[in-house]
Design a protein around this nucleic acid. Structure first.
Length: 849
DNA sequence: TAGGTGCATATTTTT
DNA sequence: TATGCACCTA
């Protein structure tokens, strides 16, 4: 990102013109105004090749502008060209521009495009996500907030830990209100800009009293820890601007031009933030928002389509421009997508079209199982392999769990792939631990991080020691971290922490020393990676992982090495960066940002991701899998028309990612956590006109059996119904693309030295011997368990809705529903107002006497 | 206090 | 299926 692109003819011209105009007007160093080479006289090159609507959006001046941009209609092009055009025509200086995106990746892409259009002056613009922009403002204005600039950003896992603490300490019964549900509520409140006081005033039922207490307790603790959660970042910024007119004016003056991408995904807080920054009346800044209500897929996070739908009411003199011409997909793909989205009620009519021709039909396949679906995918990939690069292909699914079956088959076929998202790097335990160490170094008051690592790795500090320190902290109104300073000796007027064994005291003092050393390093400007090393070595964290014989811990060491590399890279890209900057980067950057950027890959891998992650991307070949009612649309949306509409928009997003070839597949039986379930076709499939689909297989085996009035409950047959096309592993060149975590491992195994390989073999032999001994024991145990289970199942197998069962913990409950069979039988049971899904084989359930 | 076991819980989606 | 928490025991 820091390397500058090579000079193009345009660049050279730009520099020459810039030199001329700079002499006349030092304010505008980059104007290419008036240059007319290769374009109609007097016309900017930035308008070339735009259709009339796009052009209108680029040149629009004056009042607020709403660009409704259908999928693939050249939205990013319009945004970047509009910004460049503003600068070129001298209506704006680069420093006056604030462009907001939702993802770091989109921001990065926009920066790159603008740099290539305008040159390095693009760096003077603020092009960032809502969250980074707000953090930047908050760090600059921390004094006005009464916070230290070293504040920590809590991710949802940190928030959850903190909420658990709140529940424990405030005596909130976590069965009445789970910490997760409380956080959900609080997040909604923050997105609506309602603070604890505001909420307390509006309470009207008993349950809200708990929420109010939790909210207040949670917020107080965040403050005490000098920390903000994700939602706070926006809400606090809005609060800051609203309560400090001088600061607000400063930013209003600075950002004369505000552009917001994906406006349909803004929530109320973000909406207000933009409104405040834009200002009103005479001095109002120029606002451009771009979005597509049909692609709003983040309502669950507080996004509201209302913002885009009522833009014209919010800004009465607004102009709207509709971009319907699609430059991405074939007409068949667009017609399919249009047909699906047309089923959503109350939407503003919009129909994408293209002049690029009908293209191929959409290919459909009905599989018997998720394995069969994966096999179809692999077979198609193999037949494509001659004329496509792997990186042309993307496979989408509704939920991350679905990637598993696909991955297994891809591995078997030797097709290189990468999974975006899933178990995120930064959510791994060892990474969170390591970051907690760094966080505590940067912000000693960060209680969540401090308590996380207090006894990690184990240093003999258990609950007792932790309680003693926490009590001391509470008694003196200081943070947990500050309380550690009072172990052994203390600063007047405080006394030393009491209630610690000498052993615990020693352990704490050692722990403190490690942190102090690291803090000294950080303050003297050491690189974050070096601070990390010092902490991991000093605390014995890496050592403990290395000694462990859990194979997972080996991967953990590798992950820590990866984190080290990330820190080193960051330092390289930002030489002046502090430890705090690194932590901020990590907190605000998602794994989605590791998506390969277009041309950076040659052969590459195929890409697997959720539909949400796919938003904003495009691929020549797209597989949309799992089109079953219950999978996509998701189970939880089936009963609610509002949620179902969001699922449909999600389907619309999925279909419109495809440029040339679109595949849609479903599995008639899919196993979700163990139990196979038969699922009907997705309603979205029915919404696609039949003539558009080339069905390779239109019915599952179960369908066929049922039709020929075969016994209803024959076991669904897995695969086997298709002839030919057996998978031949190794038939394909698996590509020289970059390696992801998985392929890397395989590569490592191949490059082992002979000695290492011998060692490996010996270790494996020893393990095998051990295992045979263990296996006997395990077999015996398993037989006993099976017998027990069988006895229990025998008693419970006939349970049906309406029956009463007794649970060891929850007491008597009424069975509401029963799913699955045999060992996988799951019952939904209602206990005293709370309903639980329990596995009959596992749960401590018994029949009433 | 550590380590084992049992069991509940989860599968939406993310800055 | 896999993970993580809560409880119990050594």
């Amino acid at each position: 990102m820091t390397t500058e692109p090579p000079l193009s003819a345009l660049d050279r011209l730009r520099q020459r013109v810039a030199a001329q105009t700079a002499a006349a007007r030092p304010e505008a160093p980059v104007s290419v105004h008036g240059h007319a080479q290769g374009s109609p006289a007097g016309e900017s090159r930035l308008l070339e090749g735009l259709n009339p609507e796009q052009r209108a959006a680029v040149v629009h001046a004056g009042g607020p502008l709403l660009v409704i941009a259908g999928a693939g209609s050249g939205k990013t092009r319009v945004l970047t060209h509009r910004i460049a055009y503003l600068v070129e025509t001298e209506r704006a200086r680069p420093g006056e521009i604030l462009a907001i995106t939702f993802t770091n990746k989109a921001a990065k892409e926009m920066k790159e495009r603008l740099t290539s259009l305008l040159g390095p002056v693009a760096h003077r613009m603020w092009i960032s996500t809502f969250h980074s922009a707000c953090v930047r403002i908050l760090r600059a204005e921390h004094d006005a907030l009464g916070m230290r600039s070293t504040f920590t950003i809590y991710d949802s896992a940190d928030s959850l830990r903190l909420m658990n603490q709140v529940c424990r300490e405030e005596g909130i019964d976590s069965r009445v209100a789970t910490p997760k549900a409380l956080l959900r509520r609080i997040s909604d409140l923050k997105n609506e800009l309602i603070d604890p006081d505001g909420f307390a005033r509006s309470i009207n039922d008993e349950a809200d009293v708990t929420v109010a207490a939790a909210y207040r307790g949670y917020q107080n603790r965040l403050r005490a820890a000098n920390a903000l959660d994700f939602d706070d970042i926006i809400m606090t910024t809005v609060g800051l601007l609203q309560s400090h007119p001088a600061i607000l004016e400063h930013y209003q003056r600075r950002f004369r031009h505000i552009l917001v991408d994906e406006y349909q995904d803004t929530n109320h807080a973000q909406y207000v933030l933009i409104r405040e920054l834009t200002g009103r009346g005479e001095s109002m800044g120029e606002l451009t928002v771009v979005g597509d209500a049909d692609q709003s897929i983040y309502a669950f996070r507080g996004a509201t389509i209302r913002n885009i739908e009522s833009f014209e009411d919010d800004y009465p003199n607004a102009e709207s421009i509709l971009l319907e011409q699609n430059y991405r997909s074939t007409q068949n793909i667009l017609t399919a997508a249009n047909a699906v989205i047309a089923n959503n009620p109350n939407r503003r009519a919009k129909r994408l079209w293209t002049d690029s021709g009908a293209g191929e039909k959409v290919v459909g396949y009905v599989a018997d199982s998720e394995h069969d679906e994966a096999r179809f995918l692999v077979e198609e990939l193999q037949s494509l392999s001659g004329n496509r690069r792997w990186s042309d292909v993307a496979v989408f699914y509704r939920t991350n769990a679905q990637s598993r079956a696909l991955e297994e088959m891809l591995i078997r076929a030797g097709i290189p792939y990468r999974v975006i998202g899933g178990t995120r790097f930064y959510e791994r335990k060892e990474i969170k631990d390591a970051l907690a160490y760094l966080q505590v170094v940067a912000n000693p008051d960060d209680t969540v991080a401090m308590r996380r690592i207090f006894n990690t790795p184990r240093r003999g500090l258990g609950a007792k020691a932790e309680d003693a320190v926490a009590l001391h902290a509470q008694r003196h109104g200081i943070s947990f971290g500050a309380a550690l300073d009072d172990v052994g000796s203390a600063t007047y007027p405080r006394e030393p922490v009491s209630g610690l064994t000498p052993r615990a005291e020693k352990a704490i003092i050692d722990f403190r020393t490690i942190l102090e050393e690291a803090r000294a390093m950080a303050e003297s400007g050491s690189a974050p990676a070096d601070v990390l090393d010092s902490l991991m070595a000093g605390s014995g964290y890496t050592e403990e992982l290395r000694r462990s014989d859990d194979p997972q811990d080996e991967a953990r060491v590798e992950n820590l090495a990866e984190l080290h590399a990330v820190a080193a890279d960051f330092k390289k890209a930002n030489p002046d960066a502090t430890l705090g900057d690194f932590l901020e980067h990590v907190a605000l950057v998602s794994d989605t940002d590791q998506l390969p950027d277009g041309d950076a890959i040659d052969e590459g891998d195929i890409t697997l991701m959720t539909v949400h992650t796919a938003k904003g991307l495009e691929f020549p070949v797209v597989f949309v899998t799992g089109l079953e009612d219950g999978t996509f649309p998701h189970m939880r949306s089936l009963a609610d028309p509002v949620e179902l509409a969001e699922e449909r928009r999600l389907a619309y997003v999925a279909l419109t990612r495809a440029r040339e070839n679109l595949y849609i597949t479903r599995a008639s039986v899919r196993s979700q956590w163990g139990a196979p379930q038969e699922l009907p076709p997705s309603r979205f499939l029915d919404e696609i006109p039949d003539g558009l689909i080339d069905w390779r297989r239109a019915h599952s085996s179960a369908d066929v059996l049922r039709r020929s009035s075969a016994p209803r409950y024959s076991k669904p047959s897995f695969g086997g119904s298709r002839t030919g096309g057996t998978v031949k592993p190794g038939r394909l060149d698996s590509g020289t693309g970059r390696l992801d975590g998985k392929t890397k491992k395989a590569a490592a195994a191949e490059t082992l030295s002979p000695e290492d390989r011998e060692k490996l073999a010996a270790a494996e032999a020893a393990r095998a011997a051990e295992q045979t001994a263990e296996a006997e024991e395990v077999k015996r145990k398993r037989a006993a368990a099976a017998k027990q289970e069988e006895e229990k199942l025998g008693a419970l197998a006939s349970v049906k809705p309406g029956d009463t069962l007794i649970h060891k913990k929850f007491g008597a409950g009424i069975v509401r529903a029963v799913e699955g069979r045999g060992a996988n039988m799951v019952a939904t049971i209602e206990f005293d107002g709370r309903s639980k899904r329990l596995m009959l084989a596992m749960a401590p359930l018994s029949l009433p006497d």
